[in-house]
């Protein structure tokens, strides 16, 4: 399966609340494309939804390393930095 299809599956699973499956698909995308911003951002959101905040922050920071102007990643990262 190509990364686009994997991403689509991941988002479908995520929206359905099947977070374990969504995470697996996103990890597969990142194995093939470690700098895939969409996958990294989606994984960050998944971690945030499931309250794995430090992992979420890692993902958003990786997005910002690749794309410093990514507005949504910055907003999520700033929110996570507040206790």
């Amino acid at each position: 399966m190509g990364t686009e299809d994997l991403l689509e599956e991941a988002k479908f699973e995520l929206l359905a609340g099947r977070y374990e499956n969504a995470e697996k698909f996103l990890m597969k995308v990142l194995e093939q494309e470690p700098k895939n911003i969409d996958a990294l951002f989606s994984l960050g959101v998944l971690y945030e939804i499931t309250h794995r905040d430090s992992k979420a922050l890692e993902c958003f920071n990786k997005v910002l390393e690749i794309s410093p102007d990514h507005k949504e990643a910055r907003e999520h990262a700033e929110n996570l930095s507040e206790l």
């Binding site: 988002k11 609340g17 989606s42």
Partner: peptide, 14 residues
């Protein structure tokens, strides 16, 4: 609860 949804730009959010 954080409910996942899709933004208009196709990005996952909640």
């Amino acid at each position: 609860r954080r409910v996942p949804e899709m933004s208009e730009e196709g990005k996952v959010t909640y």
